[in-house]
């Protein structure tokens, strides 16, 4: 996943996106969004300050899209776990990615909440037509979220 978005360089092999070799493109130029396992929010910025790192406008719409309307001025330390991940999602979507990578973003949130969030994210992504890759250990989560599932089993050679 980190190779896809460019944070890690592959030891061998190339990364192609829509047929284009992007192996040597720095991550900031790939246009691929990433949601970390634990949402990475900048403590020195407010909610909308964090959004402004992706785009200078459209904050309200973005917040509404993830169900955080009206929280623009709130400090990020006062968000709950689910809200934080929603904000991270809003920020990732605001930068209008060509694809979104999700690195177990729901694992740190309790079951009820994550089920709702998974639905919401799926709807939003479908609505935008944005392809996404989700990495998860949770088969149920994968089944709820994904159109196609790839199993990776490292125990077999």
């Amino acid at each position: 996943m980190r190779c896809i978005c460019g944070l890690e360089e592959p030891d061998r092999g190339r990364v192609y996106f829509s047929g284009e070799d992007i192996t040597d493109v720095p991550p900031e130029s790939r246009g691929i969004g990433l949601l970390f396992q634990k949402p990475v929010l900048y403590p020195h910025l407010s909610v909308s300050g964090n959004l402004s790192l992706a785009s200078s406008h459209g904050h309200e719409d973005a917040l509404e899209e993830v169900g955080l309307q009206g929280l623009g001025e709130r400090g990020v330390s006062r968000l709950s776990g689910g809200e934080s991940q929603r904000l991270a999602l809003a920020r990732a979507l605001l930068s209008d990615p060509r694809a979104l990578l999700l690195d177990e973003p729901f694992s740190a949130i309790d079951a009820d909440l994550s089920a709702r969030l998974i639905d919401d994210v799926r709807v939003i992504l479908k609505h935008r037509g944005c392809p996404a890759v989700l990495v998860t250990h949770n088969v149920e989560e994968a089944e709820n979220f994904c159109d196609r599932i790839l199993f990776m089993d490292l125990s077999s050679p």
């Binding site: 978005c5 460019g6 944070l7 720095p26 991550p27 900031e28 130029s29 790939r30 246009g31 691929i32 969004g33 990433l34 970390f36 634990k38 990475v40 900048y42 790192l53 992706a54 991270a88 920020r91 990732a92 930068s95 990615p97 990578l101």
Partner: peptide, 12 residues
Amino acid sequence: EYDEAARVLGMG
């Protein structure tokens, strides 16, 4: 991750 998150947001 702060830096990485900024990179995937497209910041130079």
